[in-house]
Simulated assay, not measured.
Amino acid sequence: MSSRPRWRFWEKERPPEPDPPEAPPTRRPSRWQRPPLADPAQRDKLDQLRRRREMIAHDLERAESARQPDNPWQERIALLDASLATIGADLAAVDHLPPEPGFSLPATPITGIEATGGEPAAITFQIGPERFVFEEETDWDQRGGPVVRGELRRRAGEVARLVPADIPIDGRDALIAHLTDSVTVFATDLRDRALEGEPLPVQPTLAGLARPDPDFGGWRDWRGASATAARRAWRRQQLHAESIRLLTERETELEDRAKWAERLPVARRRLADLDEQIANVEQ
């Protein structure tokens, strides 16, 4: 008889089977998880009522927010108030700007004045050694007739040569820009005088094209207009327009907040009515 052991692989102990998982707890269906209605018409009606309820609930939330001290309207109004304060500071800064520097020019005579009011008009004059020539660009309508007097274009004459050498470098560019405009204003005045049959100016000078402006600084042109004053007035106009826009927007925010605050009782009643209608349909 053999002494070798016999291995009974089929008699090995099997591992215990795991316990079956516990069933999840039964949840109580919520109001909106009720079994669907059998009647399709009732289901459609219920869906419509629920959608209306969502909209009314949103309105109610907005109306309640309008009655709170901290609300979206107040946040936007605070931003608008900050912008209005900045505009007020900018306006005050414009009103208190110091006069810009201005320099008097020599009374160099303007001679050789010729002005014709034909079509096109032509203007010539001389300031010191510099001769200026302006010609009119006439606008035409579709029938070939002139509509309005065109603008004068400078055909000859270098404005920079009119600036004396002793003018400070930091003021030369501003003076050249002013004289460029003022020379054109002078030429336009000569053309208008020729068209109206009025006498030409008597003994005009270079100094008359750039008179220092004591109020705003810079210079006044041949007709007394101040470019510095015009720039500051334009800046004030921009700031005032922006201020009016922001004030209008602020008033709109206040009105919108008041409107929503007044809707609160109505929104509550409408939501309660819808809840009652939904409950009746679900029964």
Rank of each mutant, 00 (worst) to 15 (best):
M1F: 01
S2D: 08
S3A: 14
S3M: 09
S3K: 01
R6L: 08
E11G: 06
K12Y: 07
K12H: 08
E13I: 04
R14D: 13
P15K: 00
P18E: 06
E22S: 13
T26C: 06
T26F: 10
R27I: 15
R28S: 13
S30D: 15
R34K: 10
D44W: 11
D44V: 12
K45Q: 15
K45Y: 12
L46R: 05
L46H: 02
L46A: 07
D47L: 13
R50T: 08
R50A: 09
R52A: 14
E54W: 05
M55W: 14
D59N: 13
D59C: 07
L60A: 08
E61F: 11
E61V: 13
P72K: 12
W73A: 09
R76G: 05
L84H: 03
L84F: 05
A85C: 01
G88I: 01
A92T: 13
V94Y: 05
V94Q: 12
D95A: 14
P99G: 09
P99H: 12
F103I: 15
S104L: 10
T108G: 01
T108F: 03
G112A: 09
I113A: 01
I113E: 02
A115G: 04
P120C: 00
A121N: 04
A122G: 02
I123F: 03
Q126T: 15
G128W: 08
E130Q: 15
R131A: 10
V133Q: 11
V133W: 03
F134T: 09
E135F: 03
E136A: 01
T138S: 12
D139W: 10
W140M: 14
V147W: 00
L152D: 13
R153F: 03
R153P: 00
R155P: 00
R155E: 15
A156T: 07
G157W: 06
E158W: 03
R161E: 05
L162M: 04
D166Q: 10
D170G: 10
D173Y: 01
D173N: 08
A177I: 12
L179H: 07
D181L: 06
V183R: 02
V185Q: 11
F186G: 02
F186E: 05
A187M: 08
T188H: 02
R191W: 00
L195F: 02
E196I: 01
E198P: 00
P199T: 07
P199K: 01
P201F: 00
Q203N: 13
Q203D: 14
P214W: 04
D215H: 12
R220N: 14
A225S: 06
S226C: 09
R231M: 05
A233T: 15
R236G: 03
Q238Y: 07
L239G: 00
H240F: 10
A241E: 14
R245K: 13
R245L: 13
R250N: 03
E251L: 11
E251G: 12
E253C: 07
E253G: 08
W260V: 00
A261V: 00
R263I: 03
R269Q: 15
L274F: 07
L274R: 06
I278V: 11
A279R: 08
A279Q: 02
